[in-house]
Amino acid sequence: MFSTRPALPAAPAPSVSMTLARVLHEALRRHGMPADEFHRRSGISAHELTQPGLRVGRQRHERLRALMPLITPGAPDLASIDRDSLQRHWSDQAALWFNQPGAARAVTEWVHFRPLVGSIDTVDLQASDDCLVLTYRPDCQGEAALHSVLANFGILREVLRDHEAAAGPRGLQLRAELAGASRSRARLAWQHRLQMPVHGGSEVDAHRLIVRGPALRAALVPHNPWLAELSRRQLQARLDELAAQPVSDDLLSRAEAVLCGLWDAASGSGPTPPATPTEADDADPGSLQALQRAVAQALGCSRWTLRRHLDCAGLPFAELVERLRARRLAELLPRPELSLLDVAWRTGFQSASAFSRYHRQRYGVPPSARRRVMQPG
């Protein structure tokens, strides 16, 4: 259809983050699904929903996708998509989207930083001198997919409104192609909502937004390049952090994250822990069982299921606790602002005496002596 330039630099893979799980959980709750059923069918526990730094891997992502058809969205209210609403929901991104001199740059920035708004849909962008073709592949099916497509095309419509007005009727033109949109009456309704021509039918194999015209790359809209660059750097730093977040499908890392949360909560530095006891004194097998039960509850499985999976991974629960304890001790003991009681709590002990007994048995010296060796100077 047209010659393309070299491919644009690829943005980091979109984060399938707990943002999606929380939104889906809330929507299904409004549809009457009990919380326990959501946790069972998604494989995501109530504890994990409260952890903003977690990402969902492919296996549980597929389970979330299977729940999406249970939500029947209403018709997208494209009239509510305007500059004010975008700045209210995504103020940092909108500050960059609406501070671009040309339409091509505005669309490119929109595509690049979409992972920060929590979207998991796939977007491809092809570019030539006078044409941009954005191919949108929603991660869901049916009405939910159409809702997603129209809403995102409506956002781009608003992002490009000033550019189109400045370019004039022939300088910049927008057109949408919707796969499966074979009914002419529906296309007319969507055309009215999107305020652009809409094509569909059997010959359209994907959802596309096409922006073309001689003014595509012209600097027509007043902008502040210094503020645009500042916003871009800040957003890129957040995007890099997002790409570096660990995927939480590995059971060992998930169990360790729960243990850290329980221990930090016991010290008063973390979120409120579950009602299940969290003590894990070294010589008390009942305490270890209680801790194992608390971790299993937070992960949404039974203690026996957790034990079986850990045994299959070659790391029994007691060894998992010891490994995490050793790593945390190496991180916490050298910190002078933490008392030994703080370190005890954050490694799963209820008292300084229990912590001291454990430390002497394992390392041969009291924790205070080891701290002096570990601290610089």
Rank of each mutant, 00 (worst) to 15 (best):
123 V>H: 08
69 P>T: 05
143 E>V: 06
124 D>N: 14
78 L>A: 04
95 A>F: 02
131 C>M: 13
153 F>H: 07
153 F>A: 02
154 G>Y: 00
121 D>Q: 10
116 L>K: 01
113 F>L: 09
87 Q>M: 14
94 A>Y: 01
98 F>V: 03
111 V>E: 04
102 G>T: 12
86 L>G: 01
145 A>K: 00
104 A>M: 05
153 F>W: 04
132 L>F: 04
85 S>W: 11
133 V>R: 14
116 L>Q: 07
84 D>S: 15
128 S>N: 09
97 W>C: 03
77 D>F: 08
129 D>S: 14
135 T>A: 11
133 V>N: 01
101 P>S: 06
132 L>D: 02
92 D>M: 13
77 D>G: 07
114 R>S: 03
132 L>P: 00
72 T>K: 12
133 V>M: 12
146 L>R: 08
73 P>E: 01
77 D>M: 06
95 A>Q: 12
151 A>V: 09
111 V>G: 02
150 L>T: 02
75 A>N: 08
131 C>D: 11
105 R>K: 12
129 D>W: 11
128 S>L: 08
126 Q>S: 14
71 I>L: 15
137 R>L: 13
140 C>H: 06
113 F>A: 04
98 F>E: 05
107 V>P: 02
145 A>F: 00
137 R>Q: 13
127 A>Y: 00
146 L>S: 00
75 A>S: 12
101 P>H: 07
84 D>P: 02
97 W>I: 01
117 V>R: 12
78 L>G: 01
123 V>C: 06
118 G>S: 07
129 D>N: 13
80 S>F: 10
151 A>Y: 14
128 S>E: 06
78 L>S: 02
71 I>Q: 01
96 L>W: 04
91 S>E: 11
103 A>Y: 04
99 N>I: 09
136 Y>I: 03
119 S>A: 15
109 E>A: 14
103 A>Q: 04
130 D>E: 15
69 P>W: 10
124 D>G: 07
136 Y>L: 13
125 L>K: 06
151 A>E: 10
109 E>G: 03
70 L>V: 01
78 L>F: 03
142 G>C: 07
133 V>L: 14
135 T>F: 06
78 L>C: 04
116 L>W: 08
83 R>S: 06
72 T>C: 12
98 F>P: 06
109 E>F: 03
101 P>K: 07
99 N>A: 08
78 L>H: 03
146 L>V: 05
153 F>R: 00
